[in-house]
Simulated assay, not measured.
Amino acid sequence: MAEALEVEVSAFINRYNETFATYDGNQIAKLYCAPSITMRGDGAIHCFQSHDEIAQFFQGVVDAYRREGAVGGPPHDIVAVPLGERSALAIVTWKNLRSDGNIARQWRQSYNLVRFADGWRILATTFHLSGVPS
Score class of each variant (00 low, 15 high):
residue 99 S to F: 04
residue 49 Q to M: 13
residue 64 A to K: 00
residue 7 V to C: 06
residue 27 Q to M: 08
residue 3 E to K: 02
residue 130 S to A: 14
residue 120 W to S: 00
residue 106 Q to D: 09
residue 46 H to Y: 14
residue 111 Y to M: 08
residue 90 A to G: 13
residue 44 A to M: 10
residue 38 T to I: 13
residue 134 S to V: 15
residue 69 G to K: 08
residue 100 D to V: 14
residue 120 W to D: 03
residue 74 P to N: 15
residue 38 T to E: 09
residue 64 A to S: 14
residue 63 D to M: 05
residue 83 L to P: 00
residue 60 G to I: 11
residue 23 Y to S: 13
residue 112 N to T: 15
residue 77 D to C: 05
residue 55 A to F: 03
residue 106 Q to L: 12
residue 115 R to E: 03
residue 104 A to V: 15
residue 127 F to T: 00
residue 113 L to W: 01
residue 101 G to W: 06
residue 72 G to Y: 02
residue 57 F to M: 07
residue 47 C to N: 13
residue 79 V to M: 10
residue 21 A to V: 11
residue 78 I to H: 01
residue 94 W to S: 00
residue 94 W to E: 01
residue 11 A to H: 08
residue 103 I to P: 04
residue 28 I to T: 07
residue 19 T to A: 05
residue 95 K to C: 04
residue 96 N to C: 08
residue 10 S to H: 04
residue 71 V to Q: 01
residue 105 R to Y: 11
residue 26 N to F: 10
residue 20 F to M: 13
residue 117 A to H: 09
residue 50 S to P: 06
residue 106 Q to M: 11
residue 32 Y to I: 03
residue 118 D to H: 09
residue 30 K to P: 00
residue 3 E to T: 10
residue 82 P to Y: 05
residue 92 V to K: 00
residue 121 R to C: 09
residue 34 A to L: 06
residue 91 I to A: 04
residue 26 N to G: 10
residue 67 R to G: 03
residue 125 T to H: 01
residue 85 E to G: 08
residue 38 T to A: 04
residue 91 I to G: 00
residue 48 F to Y: 06
residue 114 V to L: 14
residue 97 L to A: 06
residue 84 G to P: 04
residue 92 V to F: 01
residue 91 I to K: 01
residue 81 V to R: 02
residue 17 N to C: 13
residue 59 Q to A: 14
residue 110 S to D: 07
residue 2 A to W: 07
residue 107 W to P: 00
residue 65 Y to W: 15
residue 118 D to I: 07
residue 108 R to M: 03
residue 128 H to D: 12
residue 12 F to A: 04
residue 54 I to G: 01
residue 39 M to T: 10
residue 1 M to I: 11
residue 133 P to G: 13
residue 18 E to T: 07
residue 15 R to V: 11
residue 120 W to M: 00
residue 97 L to Y: 13
residue 27 Q to P: 03
residue 107 W to A: 00
residue 19 T to G: 05
residue 36 S to R: 07
residue 125 T to I: 09
residue 1 M to H: 08
residue 126 T to Y: 07
residue 87 S to A: 15
residue 128 H to G: 06
residue 24 D to M: 11
residue 49 Q to L: 12
residue 133 P to C: 15
residue 59 Q to N: 05
residue 121 R to G: 04
residue 53 E to M: 04
residue 63 D to A: 15
residue 63 D to T: 12
residue 133 P to Q: 14
residue 53 E to K: 05
residue 12 F to W: 03
residue 16 Y to R: 02
residue 59 Q to S: 08
residue 41 G to K: 01
residue 89 L to T: 04
residue 27 Q to N: 06
residue 98 R to K: 15
residue 65 Y to C: 03
residue 40 R to M: 10
residue 109 Q to K: 12
residue 35 P to I: 08
residue 73 G to R: 02
residue 45 I to K: 02
residue 31 L to W: 02
